[in-house]
Design a protein around this nucleic acid. Sequence first.
DNA 1: AATAATGCTTCAAACGTTTGCGGATATGTA
DNA 2: TACATATCCGCAAACGTTTGAAGCATTATT
Lengths: 344, 344
Amino acid sequence: MTSARPITIKDIAKRFHCSPSTVSRALNDHPAINEDTRRNIKEYALEVGYQKNEVSLSLLNKKTATLGVVVPSIGHYYETAVIEGLHAVLQPLGYTLNICVTNENYLLEKEYLTKLLSNRIEGIFLSVAQETYDAGYYEHLEQVNQRHTPLIFIDREYETFETSRATVDDYHGAFAAVEHLIQMGYRHIAHLKGPNGLTVTEQRFKGYIDCLRKYNLDISEELIINTNFKVESAIVPTKRLLDLPLPPDAIFGVNDQVAIGAMRVAKDRGLRIPQDIGLVGFDNSPITAYTYPSLTTVGRPGRKIGMEASRLFLNQLNASEDFRHENIVLPAELIIRESTLRLS
Amino acid sequence: MTSARPITIKDIAKRFHCSPSTVSRALNDHPAINEDTRRNIKEYALEVGYQKNEVSLSLLNKKTATLGVVVPSIGHYYETAVIEGLHAVLQPLGYTLNICVTNENYLLEKEYLTKLLSNRIEGIFLSVAQETYDAGYYEHLEQVNQRHTPLIFIDREYETFETSRATVDDYHGAFAAVEHLIQMGYRHIAHLKGPNGLTVTEQRFKGYIDCLRKYNLDISEELIINTNFKVESAIVPTKRLLDLPLPPDAIFGVNDQVAIGAMRVAKDRGLRIPQDIGLVGFDNSPITAYTYPSLTTVGRPGRKIGMEASRLFLNQLNASEDFRHENIVLPAELIIRESTLRLS
DNA sequence: AATAATGCTTCAAACGTTTGCGGATATGTA
DNA sequence: TACATATCCGCAAACGTTTGAAGCATTATT
């Protein structure tokens, strides 16, 4: 039963005993149409709720005004901030965003890319899934290149893949976080690392390591444990850390979620934060300002990343022959709160 | 420079000096095509990366296999859970979800609906924006009805609008939360209410009020303050509550965010939770299990709602003449944690 | 009165794909 | 040799819209 056939321009043409061309021109205010004809047609169109079929227009103009946004999840603050930034720039320009969530799944990511290309979207913003990283797959990106569809990496990227990207300087963000811990007098600093292989994970890890090196602090394997970005994935690792003969006096979490998980475990153990143990997260998600104690964290300008990524896309669209891919890296900002502010 | 024109069926036809029909049939394994021809064509298509133009197919078949999901935001746990549920059912059936974020903005919501209809999507899942509520607008929904496009309400709905919906029993969820507080011995219970007018807000509010009535507890205007669902919107209201001559001994937050905001303020005041003050949230977002103390909350089955909403859509698609809209209401579940568990 | 100009409208092609029908060639049967 | 039957392929229309070019009245210009 569902769909009563939508009114078409032909239907209107029949009603007025004129040709579809006339109706089209009338609706688009073409000057070479009689004033009365135009008015009548427009009134009637409004009355019957005519809506132009964008599908046919897309076919005709080879333009869909649609962009794909392919991300592993939309549950975290950063991702939604990026999407908001994309939206802020691109929606006013008439673009529709087609948001696809891969759930960290490679096959789904591939399927989405194919589907988006089949649907003739005009550009893709991609943060690659974890599985894609793990397996080192990237053939599914070739089809995008082959079609010369602009591809912009956001957040999670392939370092070796030649395309534009807008990312955050995770390395220096992490470095600053650990340096801050050191300046606060913490010396035995653990890291709840993300899943191995992801650029964000490894960059933050590298920042952590390099900072320890700079200050001649020991790097201990047992102080580095993987998590999967979720709160609950921090619980067991944190317990293991605190059970060590020489437990850490600070924990740097790969994101806010795991830092909050660690906070919970530390409090359960009766540890005082920041006196007994310091905690740092990453992302500056809204909640971090209101945990107790509030969480020191590294802010990522997600909205700005989205806006920069949009700019990269637009540049590529209007680019000349000698177009070179751009690499935008925005700084991360250390936000000092109570969880590390111990007056030594 | 960007787009090298995608390969079409005509290009392939030229290459093999045959007609487009033949290519089409070869690619679709039509039996009336010579084995060799088919093989050659398919090989060549693969080689040059041919991808069928879904836009033209949509036009031809009047089917886009795309559904619109229009929500006020994607920042909260519940919303992403719903989307995941929709996805779980509909993605395997070949549907693409077009996720649109209205930012609580009426005009944007209207624009999205129009655009989705113009793009000939086959169904819409809608959680209405706050502005839409406030102003009581709903003409923009008429166009959806007029086109007989299935419309399913999720979460935020218009009670008076005749369509299918899948929602959570906020009323009884709130009632259970407050009843639990009463059973724990709390007597002076405040409510951090959401923005007025929203169904979810009002239902939870009603549950709160009715429960107080049932137990003959006073209902005090000054214990009811509006928030906007965000953490920070709970700070000032909570301070005002705690500054009252007779401050509340428990706070029921309209969602987890505001409850966590309240938790922060209470702790700043040196109040012990749950001994001095009880706290309840709503949504069971992952973090609530790991705050300190963990937060008692009311769980909403977001994923299930998404799946049920999908079912409603599919029902409507295959419905006969005597189709009636369905109204699915799933129960909310009280999840008791430390923030209210005082042993009286 | 012939020509030019103006105002309004229709024709036809195009976008990429599918599909019923008819056509052509080759093979089998009488 | 004539006819039926497979086997394979092309024609053309369709989906809804836009748009350059051409058509046709009517009015203006010489």
